[in-house]
Amino acid sequence: MSTIDTNLEKLSKSVMDGDIDTVKFLVKESLKNGVNPLEIVDKGLAKGIRTVGERYGKGEIFLTELLMGAEAMKVGMEIISPEIKKQKKELKKVGSIIIGTVAGDIHDLGKNIVAALFSAHGFDVVDLGVDVPDQKFIDKVKEIKPNILGLSALMTSTIPKQRELINLLKSSGLRDKVKVMIGGAAVNEDYARDIGADGYAENANDAVVKAKTLVVSP
């Protein structure tokens, strides 16, 4: 194995360990050594976060370890992104997502975790926050044209909003322009199907996996 490969291997391991300082160091070091930034992402950062996600999916690690991995990935990407632009290279685009908690609901723990993971997996994430007015979702979808709209609602009293928003997308002529994913403690697969959402995920990691399939599907 070459020194470059060894370093990238170490980088992916550091992402897995959530070791932010080492990630910073190794990314800078690799760039200094002239390694192609896209390769640093592909063989280092992205490989690390994928493994973390898989291990989380298998129940081998805690949520905090997943999130530390995501944070390490994010820090690495912050260093590498300007370099990618400078070299006029383009990162293989994974997709874009607008995410927010629906009007009347201010819970954001789950939504923030999902946003962090999407970001770590290379999605462009626009987080509209909590208690987001219906029209704001619609306006942002028009403006950004994301692949996915993620609607979070925790309470049984606010989950009907998810249905309303899907109907609003229809009446605004946007429903076929964006895939809708829903999440929150009170919703499930059946409910998602019932209200005409494209996807539902059990947890943050599943959400990313599901979103990736939605992005490539027509």
């Binding site: 805690f62 949520l63 999130l67 944070e71 923030n112």
Partner: peptide, 17 residues
């Protein structure tokens, strides 16, 4: 206020998990 304890800001607490 309003944050969460799963974030790296609370990383020194993770060892207690």
């Amino acid at each position: 206020i309003g944050g969460n304890f799963l974030s790296p800001k609370a990383c020194e607490t993770f060892k207690f998990i």
